[in-house]
């Protein structure tokens, strides 16, 4: 478990780096490093399916993000947020959420009853399901990106 905790710490670090970097490509590579750590943790704990899911996630998400950065902007030039009424409300919400999450919810997790063992259906069907979800997403991407048949712009 210690190794897992250390790797999780590294993931948190990679996540922070990804969010703080002004250069978006570096930020994405850092996210990719976090993804690799995720895969390693899953395999380490024996979660084969989740690990494969992580591989798919990294393999699709990182190239897509790089492509998106290529088509938009490579530099995060946005200013940091100023403190307004709206932002104060946001901060209060986040603090309340952190308190509830860490104080109330997380201590309950180890006491949860063990998860019932699943009787999986035919293996092909569950793969079919994930493939369907991804296909639907790709259809959505096509619909969003297509320019023909669009009114109002371009």
């Amino acid at each position: 478990m210690v190794a897992v905790n250390v790797l999780l710490g590294l993931m948190i670090l990679a996540g922070l780096v990804a969010l703080e970097m002004r250069n978006l490509r570096v930020a994405i590579y850092s996210l990719g490093a976090g993804g690799v750590l995720f895969i390693v943790i899953s395999f380490l704990m024996g979660a084969l399916e989740v690990g494969i899911g992580g591989v798919i996630l990294v393999a699709i998400l990182i190239p897509l993000l790089i492509w998106a950065v290529g088509r938009t902007t490579g530099e995060d030039t946005t200013a940091r947020m100023r403190l307004e009424v709206n932002e104060i409300f946001v901060l209060i919400s986040i603090v309340a959420f952190i308190v509830v999450l860490l104080v109330v919810i997380i201590p309950l997790f180890p006491e949860l009853p063990s998860v019932p063992e699943a009787v999986e259906g035919p293996m092909g069907l569950s793969i079919l399901r994930e493939v369907l979800v991804l296909l639907a997403a790709l259809a959505g991407v096509w619909a969003v990106l297509r320019l023909v048949g669009r009114r109002g712009d371009k």
Binding site: N86, E87, F89, V90, S93, I94, A96, F97, V100, L101
Partner: peptide, 16 residues
């Protein structure tokens, strides 16, 4: 950010 905050409040209520 505002929408995310509303979601958070929803989550907090659900948790409780």
């Amino acid at each position: 950010t505002t929408y995310v905050s509303w979601c958070l409040w929803g989550l907090i209520i659900l948790f409780l």
